[in-house]
Amino acid sequence: MSGKIVFNIRELAKRPPKLLPGHRLCAGCAAPIIAKLALLATDRPTIVVNATGCLEVATTIFPYTSWNVPWIHNAFENAASTASGIEAVIKALKKKGKYKYENVDIIVFAGDGGTYDIGLQSLSGALERGHDFLYILYDNEAYMNTGIQRSGGTPLGAWTTTSPAGRVIPGKTQHKKPIADIAVAHRIPYVATATPAHWMDFMRKVRKGLDVNGPAFIHALSPCDRGWRFDTSETIEVCKLAVDTCYFPLWEFENGEWRLTDRSLAIARNPRLKKPVEEFLKVQGRFKHLFKPENRHLIEEIQRHVDAIWEDLLERTGIK
Protein backbone atom coordinates (compact mmCIF):
# COMPACT_ATOMS: atom_id res chain seq x y z
CA MET A 1 0.00 0.00 0.00
CA SER A 2 1.04 3.57 -0.60
CA GLY A 3 -0.32 4.67 2.79
CA LYS A 4 3.05 4.63 4.54
CA ILE A 5 4.05 8.24 3.95
CA VAL A 6 1.95 10.64 6.03
CA PHE A 7 2.01 14.43 5.79
CA ASN A 8 0.89 16.53 8.76
CA ILE A 9 -0.68 19.47 7.01
CA ARG A 10 -1.13 21.51 10.22
CA GLU A 11 2.62 21.42 10.75
CA LEU A 12 3.52 21.98 7.08
CA ALA A 13 1.18 24.98 6.87
CA LYS A 14 3.20 26.83 9.52
CA ARG A 15 6.30 26.89 7.33
CA PRO A 16 7.11 29.71 4.94
CA PRO A 17 5.91 28.75 1.44
CA LYS A 18 8.45 27.72 -1.20
CA LEU A 19 6.24 29.18 -3.91
CA LEU A 20 5.41 32.74 -2.90
CA PRO A 21 2.18 34.66 -3.46
CA GLY A 22 2.18 37.67 -5.76
CA HIS A 23 2.60 35.48 -8.86
CA ARG A 24 0.38 36.44 -11.76
CA LEU A 25 -1.25 33.15 -12.69
CA CYS A 26 -5.00 33.52 -13.26
CA ALA A 27 -7.41 33.32 -10.33
CA GLY A 28 -8.34 29.68 -9.80
CA CYS A 29 -5.34 28.25 -11.69
CA ALA A 30 -4.35 24.71 -10.70
CA ALA A 31 -0.66 25.01 -11.61
CA PRO A 32 0.44 26.89 -8.44
CA ILE A 33 -1.48 24.36 -6.31
CA ILE A 34 0.49 21.58 -8.00
CA ALA A 35 3.82 23.37 -7.58
CA LYS A 36 3.09 24.31 -3.97
CA LEU A 37 2.09 20.76 -2.97
CA ALA A 38 5.05 19.21 -4.80
CA LEU A 39 7.53 21.49 -3.02
CA LEU A 40 5.90 20.66 0.33
CA ALA A 41 6.54 16.96 -0.12
CA THR A 42 10.25 17.18 0.57
CA ASP A 43 12.60 18.69 3.16
CA ARG A 44 15.79 18.21 1.19
CA PRO A 45 17.49 21.01 -0.74
CA THR A 46 15.55 21.44 -3.97
CA ILE A 47 16.39 22.80 -7.40
CA VAL A 48 13.48 23.61 -9.69
CA VAL A 49 13.78 23.53 -13.47
CA ASN A 50 10.95 25.18 -15.36
CA ALA A 51 10.09 24.75 -19.02
CA THR A 52 8.49 27.70 -20.77
CA GLY A 53 4.81 27.82 -19.98
CA CYS A 54 2.16 29.52 -17.88
CA LEU A 55 3.89 28.64 -14.62
CA GLU A 56 7.22 29.98 -15.83
CA VAL A 57 6.08 33.28 -17.34
CA ALA A 58 3.62 34.15 -14.58
CA THR A 59 5.92 33.39 -11.63
CA THR A 60 8.95 35.26 -12.94
CA ILE A 61 7.73 38.49 -14.48
CA PHE A 62 10.75 40.78 -14.36
CA PRO A 63 11.99 41.89 -11.87
CA TYR A 64 9.96 39.58 -9.60
CA THR A 65 10.28 35.90 -8.77
CA SER A 66 7.87 33.76 -6.78
CA TRP A 67 10.36 30.97 -6.18
CA ASN A 68 11.78 30.61 -2.70
CA VAL A 69 14.06 27.79 -3.96
CA PRO A 70 16.86 27.77 -6.58
CA TRP A 71 15.09 27.95 -9.92
CA ILE A 72 16.19 27.88 -13.55
CA HIS A 73 14.44 28.41 -16.85
CA ASN A 74 16.28 27.57 -20.03
CA ALA A 75 13.98 27.13 -23.02
CA PHE A 76 10.72 25.51 -24.04
CA GLU A 77 12.15 22.26 -25.36
CA ASN A 78 14.98 21.43 -23.00
CA ALA A 79 13.77 21.37 -19.40
CA ALA A 80 14.69 17.66 -19.10
CA SER A 81 18.16 18.26 -20.60
CA THR A 82 18.71 21.17 -18.21
CA ALA A 83 17.81 18.89 -15.30
CA SER A 84 20.18 16.23 -16.70
CA GLY A 85 22.98 18.81 -16.77
CA ILE A 86 22.31 19.88 -13.19
CA GLU A 87 22.38 16.27 -12.03
CA ALA A 88 25.66 15.66 -13.91
CA VAL A 89 27.28 18.80 -12.45
CA ILE A 90 26.31 17.78 -8.92
CA LYS A 91 27.80 14.32 -9.52
CA ALA A 92 31.05 15.83 -10.82
CA LEU A 93 31.31 18.33 -7.94
CA LYS A 94 30.68 15.55 -5.42
CA LYS A 95 33.54 13.53 -6.93
CA LYS A 96 35.83 16.51 -6.45
CA GLY A 97 34.59 16.98 -2.89
CA LYS A 98 33.21 20.42 -3.72
CA TYR A 99 29.54 19.80 -2.97
CA LYS A 100 28.16 20.04 0.53
CA TYR A 101 24.74 18.40 0.14
CA GLU A 102 24.29 14.64 0.25
CA ASN A 103 20.95 14.52 -1.56
CA VAL A 104 19.45 17.21 -3.74
CA ASP A 105 15.99 16.98 -5.24
CA ILE A 106 15.75 18.12 -8.83
CA ILE A 107 12.17 18.82 -9.85
CA VAL A 108 11.10 19.80 -13.36
CA PHE A 109 7.79 21.58 -13.87
CA ALA A 110 6.63 21.61 -17.47
CA GLY A 111 3.29 22.11 -19.14
CA ASP A 112 1.70 19.95 -21.80
CA GLY A 113 3.23 22.00 -24.62
CA GLY A 114 6.70 21.60 -23.14
CA THR A 115 6.16 17.87 -22.61
CA TYR A 116 3.83 16.32 -25.20
CA ASP A 117 5.10 18.38 -28.11
CA ILE A 118 8.13 20.61 -27.84
CA GLY A 119 10.05 18.90 -25.02
CA LEU A 120 9.34 15.26 -25.87
CA GLN A 121 12.72 14.41 -27.37
CA SER A 122 14.72 15.96 -24.51
CA LEU A 123 12.45 14.21 -22.00
CA SER A 124 12.85 10.85 -23.73
CA GLY A 125 16.62 11.30 -23.85
CA ALA A 126 16.85 12.16 -20.16
CA LEU A 127 14.65 9.17 -19.22
CA GLU A 128 16.80 6.88 -21.35
CA ARG A 129 20.06 8.17 -19.82
CA GLY A 130 18.58 7.53 -16.38
CA HIS A 131 19.26 10.86 -14.67
CA ASP A 132 18.00 11.09 -11.11
CA PHE A 133 15.24 13.71 -11.26
CA LEU A 134 11.48 14.11 -11.00
CA TYR A 135 9.55 15.46 -13.97
CA ILE A 136 6.14 16.88 -13.12
CA LEU A 137 3.90 17.57 -16.07
CA TYR A 138 1.06 19.96 -15.19
CA ASP A 139 -1.35 19.22 -17.99
CA ASN A 140 -3.83 21.98 -18.80
CA GLU A 141 -4.51 20.37 -22.16
CA ALA A 142 -3.58 23.24 -24.50
CA TYR A 143 -1.12 26.12 -24.96
CA MET A 144 -2.92 28.31 -22.43
CA ASN A 145 -0.11 30.80 -21.97
CA THR A 146 -0.26 31.99 -25.58
CA GLY A 147 -4.04 31.89 -25.88
CA ILE A 148 -5.51 28.37 -25.86
CA GLN A 149 -3.99 26.67 -28.90
CA ARG A 150 -4.44 22.89 -29.24
CA SER A 151 -1.56 20.64 -28.13
CA GLY A 152 -0.84 16.92 -28.09
CA GLY A 153 -2.55 16.91 -24.71
CA THR A 154 -5.86 18.37 -25.90
CA PRO A 155 -8.64 15.76 -25.83
CA LEU A 156 -10.99 14.84 -28.67
CA GLY A 157 -13.78 17.32 -29.29
CA ALA A 158 -12.29 20.14 -27.22
CA TRP A 159 -12.66 23.66 -28.55
CA THR A 160 -9.40 25.64 -28.76
CA THR A 161 -8.51 28.68 -30.86
CA THR A 162 -6.71 26.44 -33.37
CA SER A 163 -9.36 23.70 -33.29
CA PRO A 164 -12.43 25.95 -33.25
CA ALA A 165 -15.76 24.18 -33.04
CA GLY A 166 -18.06 25.17 -35.89
CA ARG A 167 -19.48 23.99 -39.17
CA VAL A 168 -16.18 22.55 -40.44
CA ILE A 169 -14.86 20.66 -37.40
CA PRO A 170 -16.43 19.85 -34.01
CA GLY A 171 -13.35 20.87 -31.97
CA LYS A 172 -10.13 18.85 -31.94
CA THR A 173 -10.40 15.79 -34.19
CA GLN A 174 -7.69 13.67 -32.53
CA HIS A 175 -7.40 11.96 -29.15
CA LYS A 176 -4.99 12.92 -26.38
CA LYS A 177 -1.48 11.47 -26.58
CA PRO A 178 -0.91 8.78 -23.87
CA ILE A 179 2.08 10.60 -22.38
CA ALA A 180 2.33 8.65 -19.10
CA ASP A 181 2.33 5.38 -21.08
CA ILE A 182 5.20 6.77 -23.15
CA ALA A 183 7.11 7.40 -19.91
CA VAL A 184 6.28 3.85 -18.72
CA ALA A 185 7.58 2.48 -22.02
CA HIS A 186 11.03 3.82 -21.05
CA ARG A 187 10.90 1.41 -18.08
CA ILE A 188 11.93 4.12 -15.61
CA PRO A 189 11.59 3.37 -11.87
CA TYR A 190 8.51 5.50 -11.18
CA VAL A 191 5.57 6.88 -13.20
CA ALA A 192 2.29 8.15 -11.77
CA THR A 193 -0.77 10.23 -12.53
CA ALA A 194 -2.20 12.71 -10.03
CA THR A 195 -4.47 15.69 -9.54
CA PRO A 196 -4.22 18.53 -7.00
CA ALA A 197 -7.70 17.59 -5.70
CA HIS A 198 -6.32 14.26 -4.45
CA TRP A 199 -3.54 16.14 -2.71
CA MET A 200 -2.35 13.56 -0.20
CA ASP A 201 -2.08 10.98 -2.98
CA PHE A 202 -0.20 13.54 -5.12
CA MET A 203 2.26 14.47 -2.35
CA ARG A 204 2.97 10.80 -1.64
CA LYS A 205 3.68 10.25 -5.31
CA VAL A 206 6.03 13.24 -5.38
CA ARG A 207 7.91 11.86 -2.38
CA LYS A 208 8.14 8.41 -3.99
CA GLY A 209 9.31 9.92 -7.27
CA LEU A 210 12.05 11.85 -5.47
CA ASP A 211 13.11 8.87 -3.35
CA VAL A 212 13.68 6.45 -6.24
CA ASN A 213 17.10 6.26 -7.78
CA GLY A 214 16.65 7.38 -11.37
CA PRO A 215 14.09 9.32 -13.34
CA ALA A 216 10.48 9.65 -12.22
CA PHE A 217 7.54 11.11 -14.11
CA ILE A 218 4.27 12.44 -12.70
CA HIS A 219 1.41 13.42 -14.98
CA ALA A 220 -0.74 15.90 -13.03
CA LEU A 221 -4.05 17.19 -14.38
CA SER A 222 -4.18 20.98 -14.14
CA PRO A 223 -7.65 22.32 -15.03
CA CYS A 224 -7.54 25.79 -16.60
CA ASP A 225 -10.63 27.90 -15.95
CA ARG A 226 -9.88 30.29 -18.84
CA GLY A 227 -9.18 27.61 -21.43
CA TRP A 228 -11.65 24.96 -20.32
CA ARG A 229 -14.34 27.57 -19.72
CA PHE A 230 -15.57 26.98 -16.17
CA ASP A 231 -15.93 29.18 -13.09
CA THR A 232 -12.71 29.98 -11.19
CA SER A 233 -14.04 28.29 -8.04
CA GLU A 234 -14.61 24.91 -9.78
CA THR A 235 -10.97 23.93 -10.40
CA ILE A 236 -10.86 21.25 -7.72
CA GLU A 237 -14.38 20.00 -8.57
CA VAL A 238 -13.34 19.50 -12.20
CA CYS A 239 -10.34 17.43 -11.03
CA LYS A 240 -12.65 15.26 -8.94
CA LEU A 241 -15.02 14.76 -11.88
CA ALA A 242 -12.11 13.82 -14.16
CA VAL A 243 -11.19 11.03 -11.74
CA ASP A 244 -14.77 9.99 -10.92
CA THR A 245 -15.59 9.56 -14.63
CA CYS A 246 -12.30 7.66 -15.22
CA TYR A 247 -11.35 10.31 -17.79
CA PHE A 248 -8.18 10.71 -15.73
CA PRO A 249 -7.54 7.58 -13.62
CA LEU A 250 -5.06 7.78 -10.72
CA TRP A 251 -2.39 5.11 -10.92
CA GLU A 252 1.28 4.51 -10.32
CA PHE A 253 3.87 2.31 -11.99
CA GLU A 254 6.60 1.36 -9.56
CA ASN A 255 9.44 -1.03 -10.34
CA GLY A 256 7.48 -2.75 -13.09
CA GLU A 257 4.25 -3.01 -11.12
CA TRP A 258 0.98 -1.20 -11.84
CA ARG A 259 -1.28 0.01 -9.05
CA LEU A 260 -4.46 2.07 -8.94
CA THR A 261 -4.53 4.63 -6.11
CA ASP A 262 -6.92 6.79 -4.10
CA ARG A 263 -10.32 7.37 -5.71
CA SER A 264 -9.58 5.25 -8.78
CA LEU A 265 -8.87 2.25 -6.58
CA ALA A 266 -12.22 2.82 -4.87
CA ILE A 267 -13.95 2.94 -8.27
CA ALA A 268 -12.23 -0.27 -9.36
CA ARG A 269 -13.48 -2.01 -6.21
CA ASN A 270 -16.97 -0.56 -6.52
CA PRO A 271 -17.75 0.10 -10.21
CA ARG A 272 -21.06 1.78 -9.29
CA LEU A 273 -19.02 4.86 -8.31
CA LYS A 274 -17.93 5.37 -11.93
CA LYS A 275 -19.79 8.33 -13.44
CA PRO A 276 -20.53 8.77 -17.17
CA VAL A 277 -17.96 10.98 -18.92
CA GLU A 278 -20.78 13.41 -19.78
CA GLU A 279 -20.63 14.65 -16.16
CA PHE A 280 -17.06 15.81 -16.73
CA LEU A 281 -17.76 17.29 -20.18
CA LYS A 282 -20.89 19.24 -19.34
CA VAL A 283 -19.30 21.51 -16.73
CA GLN A 284 -16.82 22.87 -19.30
CA GLY A 285 -17.58 25.40 -22.01
CA ARG A 286 -14.93 23.95 -24.31
CA PHE A 287 -17.18 20.88 -24.81
CA LYS A 288 -20.45 22.83 -25.07
CA HIS A 289 -20.88 22.10 -28.81
CA LEU A 290 -20.74 18.33 -28.17
CA PHE A 291 -24.21 18.52 -26.63
CA LYS A 292 -25.79 19.62 -29.92
CA PRO A 293 -27.70 16.76 -31.58
CA GLU A 294 -25.30 16.51 -34.55
CA ASN A 295 -22.27 16.08 -32.26
CA ARG A 296 -23.69 13.68 -29.65
CA HIS A 297 -21.89 10.76 -31.31
CA LEU A 298 -18.60 12.36 -30.20
CA ILE A 299 -19.60 12.02 -26.54
CA GLU A 300 -20.18 8.31 -27.18
CA GLU A 301 -16.80 8.15 -28.91
CA ILE A 302 -15.10 9.83 -25.90
CA GLN A 303 -16.94 7.43 -23.55
CA ARG A 304 -15.73 4.42 -25.58
CA HIS A 305 -12.16 5.77 -25.51
CA VAL A 306 -12.28 6.36 -21.73
CA ASP A 307 -13.80 2.91 -21.11
CA ALA A 308 -11.17 1.15 -23.25
CA ILE A 309 -8.32 2.83 -21.34
CA TRP A 310 -9.99 2.08 -17.99
CA GLU A 311 -10.55 -1.62 -18.86
CA ASP A 312 -6.95 -1.84 -20.01
CA LEU A 313 -5.81 -0.29 -16.73
CA LEU A 314 -7.91 -2.74 -14.70
CA GLU A 315 -6.16 -5.56 -16.52
CA ARG A 316 -2.68 -4.10 -16.04
CA THR A 317 -3.26 -3.57 -12.31
CA GLY A 318 -4.50 -7.15 -12.00
CA ILE A 319 -7.97 -6.15 -10.83
CA LYS A 320 -9.58 -7.86 -13.82
Partner: peptide, 19 residues
Protein backbone atom coordinates in the same frame (compact mmCIF):
# COMPACT_ATOMS: atom_id res chain seq x y z
CA UNK B 1 23.38 42.29 -15.54
CA UNK B 2 20.17 42.22 -13.54
CA UNK B 3 18.07 41.76 -16.68
CA UNK B 4 19.07 38.09 -16.79
CA UNK B 5 17.81 37.42 -13.30
CA UNK B 6 14.58 38.23 -11.51
CA UNK B 7 15.86 39.88 -8.34
CA UNK B 8 12.81 40.93 -6.30
CA UNK B 9 10.38 38.65 -4.50
CA UNK B 10 6.90 38.62 -5.97
CA UNK B 11 5.55 39.26 -2.47
CA UNK B 12 6.26 42.92 -3.32
CA UNK B 13 3.62 42.66 -6.04
CA UNK B 14 0.11 42.70 -4.59
CA UNK B 15 -2.48 40.77 -6.60
CA UNK B 16 -5.34 41.48 -4.19
CA UNK B 17 -6.75 44.20 -6.45
CA UNK B 18 -7.80 41.56 -9.02
CA UNK B 19 -10.55 40.48 -6.67
Amino acid sequence: PLSALPFKLSTEFKTGDWR
